[in-house]
Nucleic acid binder design. Structure first.
Length: 428
RNA sequence: GGAGGGAUGGCAGAGCGGACGAUUGCGACGGUCUUGAAAACCGUUGGGCCUUCAAGGGUCCCGGGGGUUCGAAUCCCCCUCCCUCCGCCA
């Protein structure tokens, strides 16, 4: 959520930033109108309340002096004021609600250095690392769904029978590889990041804090009977880890990581990327997460990107890093870098990580603040997140990249410790 | 799912219609004393909103919401959460 105070203080800056995304700014004008009225209403109500308190004190004094009979007029006056206060309060609440409802739908302001653009084509390729897409051999040009069948390590057909399209099931060493990748993703960040294993079903408020609700409800699985939602990423529960809390500046930056299942309805994607593991409704992911001060945010953003990237480098996959343009940015993000790995068999770049700096947008929704060491008002923290390792697409790029001419798969060295010493996956 | 008991400041724990944003203890922070420390003593020690250059002022918050009243932490109703017992259960 945007900062109402900032909007009030520098409306042109805020509106220009939102406009850079191609978002309408009329809602912000509406917010400012409501805000001005609200302040007038609150101010008047407070003054009247002050008067009521004074009268009540007088009435109390008369009672103590045994002159209760003289209080009738005061009582009547106070009752009148009370009625007026009720009206003002009701109006104030209505205005607050309107403001909140509008603001919940307005996306974050892009960072100043976030590249402008009107669609995915305007994303900036920061660097491409690893092999050239043309450098892969014929034996690597087999898509992972075929490899999965061949080796019996991926069983899409039966997963679909159980759960429907875009669900996957791993078998044998394929399943082992999933587990290995998760541990690999966690262990390499254990030095600085506290491992969290959060719930995967969360309340509506929790989903609202990250910006996934109310606007993107169609993308999420909902358990209506219980008022719960299945998380699309560990970012959701991790953002709420400190909701409503005030931390000391000394506790920042706070680095967290979480492995969870992630659930996505992919409402707008029906029929696209349906083959194999390109896009699935349920998958495993290790998420890196950080709360920090505004001053620490840039460094922490770089750090999470470095770590997400290093995980791909050490697996020996070809990849590229994208600086997302204003049009492709997630609603909560001010700046996002994507990592895409190249899958030679599917001949596709697959997004495996999105490293976002959300400024105080999510913190304001979740109400996570810190007390500055130097004193002064509490401030909203900044939040950052990025996939440390998204299993299915890495799995896919991996088996395609490491397929040998004989059809078996070489397990990259970095994963040997996580595969119980198994170095090759052959037919069963 | 059934029955009972709870929810107050960083923690513990008073208050049960009027001068209570809240006694007190602990903790934390600052000071006095001390070669230093401890002890003792003194002081400080929540958040939101409005207003303000600032200082200050106003107002709200005793789990959440509603009600009664001139006035609610205190009385009434609803909800949520926690604890104990029973049932069920990985």
């Amino acid at each position: 959520m945007l900062d109402l105070r900032q909007l009030r203080a520098e409306p042109d800056t805020v509106k220009a930033a939102v406009a850079r995304r191609g978002e309408p700014t009329a809602p912000l004008d509406q917010v400012m109108v409501h805000d001005e009225r609200r302040r007038a209403v609150v101010s008047e109500a407070d003054d009247l309340r002050s008067e009521v308190k004074r009268i009540s004190a007088e009435v109390g004094a008369l009672h103590r002096d045994g002159r209760a009979g003289e209080a009738d007029e005061l009582r009547a006056r106070s009752r009148e004021l009370g009625a007026r206060i009720d009206e003002l309060d009701a109006e104030g609440e209505q205005l607050s609600e309107w403001i909140r409802r509008i603001l919940l739908f307005v996306p974050n302001m892009p960072a100043e250095d976030c590249p402008g653009g009107s669609g995915p084509d305007d994303n900036v390729v920061v660097r491409t690392v690893g092999h050239d897409p043309s450098s892969f051999g014929e034996h690597q040009r087999v898509p992972h769904w075929d490899i999965g069948d061949e080796l019996g390590i991926l069983d899409i057909d039966r997963a679909v029978r159980m759960s429907g399209a875009m669900f996957a099931m791993y078998r044998g060493l394929g399943a082992r590889l999933v587990r290995g990748l998760i541990d690999y993703g966690l262990d390499r960040n254990r030095d600085l990041y506290e491992e969290i294993r959060p719930p995967t079903l969360v309340r509506t408020e929790t989903m609202t804090s990250t910006g996934h609700l109310p606007k993107f409800a169609d993308d999420a699985y909902q358990l209506e009977r219980d008022g719960l939602w299945a998380i699309p990423t560990a970012e959701v529960p991790l953002t709420s880890l400190l909701s409503g809390e005030i931390v000391e500046e000394a506790d920042l930056p706070m680095r967290l990581m979480g492995h969870t299942s992630c659930f996505r309805r992919e409402a707008g994607s029906a029929g696209r990327d349906t083959r194999g593991l390109l896009r699935v409704h349920e998958f495993d992911k290790v998420e890196l997460y950080g709360f920090c001060t505004p001053e620490q945010a840039h460094d922490l953003h770089d750090e999470i990107l470095d770590r997400a990237e290093a995980a791909i480098v050490d697996l020996g996959l070809a990849y590229r890093v994208l600086d997302l343009c204003t049009a492709d940015l997630g609603a909560a993000s001010a700046r996002t870098f994507d990592i895409e790995v190249y899958a030679p068999g599917a001949d596709r770049w697959l997004e495996v990580s999105s490293i976002s700096w959300c400024r105080d947008y999510q913190a304001r929704r979740a109400n996570v603040r810190y007390r500055p060491a130097a004193g002064g008002r509490t401030q909203m923290v900044h939040s950052l997140n990025g996939s440390g390792l998204a299993v299915p697409r890495v799995w896919a790029a991996l088996v395609e990249t490491y397929r040998r001419p004989d059809g078996s798969i070489e397990v990259p060295e970095a994963l040997h410790p996580y595969m119980g010493g198994i170095t090759s996956i052959g037919p069963r």
